[in-house]
């Protein structure tokens, strides 16, 4: 898990900067995707529950540092979403194309539900804008998760030593 944390931090910082400083000027189909959530989901699917939760935690904390949201709230929402989809992924037959797309949609719905619920519980009002944007956000997330998934898949393959046959 140590190496994973060192990888998670720079990856999430880069995605945070893209999400906050670049994508608002070039929104995809009118919405700004949650890149850090997608990265955490993709990592969680490939590396399992604990790793996914750790990446969700890092993503959530960084996200909240640059939002009005109290720090920690997004971390709870991100971790919940990643843990649920990583659990689902283990119970389903391995598929590296359709399953990540479907599970990214499930993760987006869980993240938004938990996030809005926690905001409500803490006395914040939430905007209807995000509900109206949800269908487009789901489509954009569904389209973006595969590049993340395959990038991490390739990265892990390159980083891990191959077994040697004697």
């Amino acid at each position: 898990m140590g190496l994973s944390l060192y990888l998670a931090l720079p990856v999430m910082v880069i995605l945070l900067i893209i999400q906050t400083s670049v994508l608002p000027r070039f929104p995809l189909w009118g919405v700004v995707p949650q890149l850090m959530l997608l990265a955490a989901v993709a990592w969680g699917l490939l590396e399992g529950l604990e790793e996914g939760a750790l990446w969700g935690f890092v993503a959530g904390i960084l996200s909240d540092l640059f939002s009005i949201t109290p720090v920690g709230l997004s971390a709870l929402a991100f971790m919940s979403a990643v843990i649920v989809v990583a659990l689902l992924y283990r119970t389903l037959p391995i598929n590296r194309f359709v399953l990540p797309v479907i599970l990214s949609l499930v993760a987006t719905l869980i993240w938004l539900f938990v996030y809005l619920l926690l905001l409500r519980l803490m006395g914040f009002s939430s905007s209807w804008q995000q509900i109206s944007d949800l269908p487009r956000l789901l489509l954009v997330h569904g389209g973006l998760v595969l590049p993340f998934y395959w990038f991490f898949y390739g990265l892990l393959k390159a980083l891990r030593p191959r077994p040697i046959e004697v």
């Binding site: 906050t20 608002p24 939002s67 905007s127």
Partner: peptide
């Protein structure tokens, strides 16, 4: 230099 990361807030 940046916009809010949250879809719920405008900052």
């Amino acid at each position: 230099i940046a916009r809010d990361t949250s879809p719920s807030f405008r900052s």
